[in-house]
């Protein structure tokens, strides 16, 4: 990835529960819609039959949007880095909704959150995997399975982290570069995650972008954050963090394969953003997109 160039989709929006009306009434404000499928189904557990129950209202809306615009799938539930668990049922479910909604591509996070066991445990936060050869091989094998099962491109997103394990064999950009080159997955580069990590761990985002193979980046995420316990967090709080706009310009200038820029915000920020705020963030992103894409 991206051995086959992806279509230029433009500027899009990550769907959340406050957006159904916006999606219908402001369809001109975004070029595509990205959905988190895990929030639109009920998962009764890996041993349940049937395992998944999708929310009819959400999927009705997605089908209507799909008639006019591309959809992207951004899952949060695979936990691809879990050493003791690879959820084939989750991959099957992504394939089922891909068949129905025909995503341009689908993605998940380069992290782990689930532990297997009689009672599976979920950390409720994406934890970083160690950037070691052992983990690279583990994830490459899983990407191979996903790409064989789901007939559209697959991307993995760089993670945000608040603790930093010492003595890892590779840096994060080096791990991402090798993973993309050797597995065929693309990179979903979350610029806010880069900014968050740079602030909390004392490096410059520019150095991260310099080390990353930007030719492998297919999609960008932009968002805002918040302060917590002396850290800056990836809270998706309100508008895009101001420094991220500069990173977006730098990245689009240097990354010709980028096909999409997605604005993310948490639904709890809606009272702050309101409709006008969402439109303003999308318009800002579009002005930058139009200059470089």
């Amino acid at each position: 990835m991206p051995s086959v160039p992806q279509p230029k989709l433009g500027v899009g929006l990550l769907f959340n529960p406050v957006l159904p009306e916006f999606v219908t009434s402001h369809a001109d404000a975004f070029d595509y819609l990205e959905i988190i499928p895990d929030r639109e189904w009920s998962d009764r557990g890996v041993d349940a039959t049937p395992r998944y129950a999708t929310l009819d209202a959400s999927f009705d809306l997605f089908r209507r949007v799909r008639e006019r615009k591309p959809l992207l799938c951004h899952s949060i539930g695979l936990s691809i880095g879990s050493a003791g668990l690879f959820d084939l049922g989750h991959v099957d479910q992504i394939n089922r909704i891909q068949t129905e909604l025909d995503f341009a591509w689908h993605s998940d996070h380069l992290s782990f959150a689930r532990l297997p066991g009689e009672h599976e445990m979920h950390t409720a936060i994406s934890m970083p995997v160690p950037y070691d050869q052992e983990v690279l091989q583990l994830i490459k094998d899983r990407v191979e399975h996903i790409r064989a099962e789901v007939p559209c491109p697959f991307l993995l997103e760089n993670n945000v982290y608040y603790v930093d394990a010492p003595d890892q064999e590779m840096s994060e950009p080096e791990f991402l570069n090798r993973l993309a080159r050797e597995s065929g997955c693309g990179i979903l580069l979350d610029l806010h995650n880069v900014y968050v990590n740079s602030r909390n761990h004392g490096f410059t985002p520019e150095s991260f972008l310099r080390d990353l193979d930007l030719s492998q980046v297919v999609e960008l995420h932009i968002a805002g954050g918040d302060d917590l316990l002396g850290f800056y967090t990836d809270a998706h709080a309100g508008p895009v963090a101001e420094p991220v706009w500069g990173l977006l310009e730098d990245t689009l200038r240097a990354a010709p394969a980028v096909s999409a820029v997605t604005f993310e915000f948490h639904e709890s920020s809606y009272p702050m953003l309101k409709t006008e705020g969402i439109v303003a963030e999308l318009s800002h992103a579009r002005r930058i997109w139009d200059r470089y894409a």
Binding site: A124, I125, Y162, V163, P166, D167, N200, L228, L229, F231
Partner: peptide
Amino acid sequence: PLELHRLRTVAAQPGMRVNTAIHRANR
């Protein structure tokens, strides 16, 4: 030994309190 070293290091980092706070908020 390397994993023990890594876990001891991250357990003592202040960011672990942030992880716990986010874990609780997300639950």
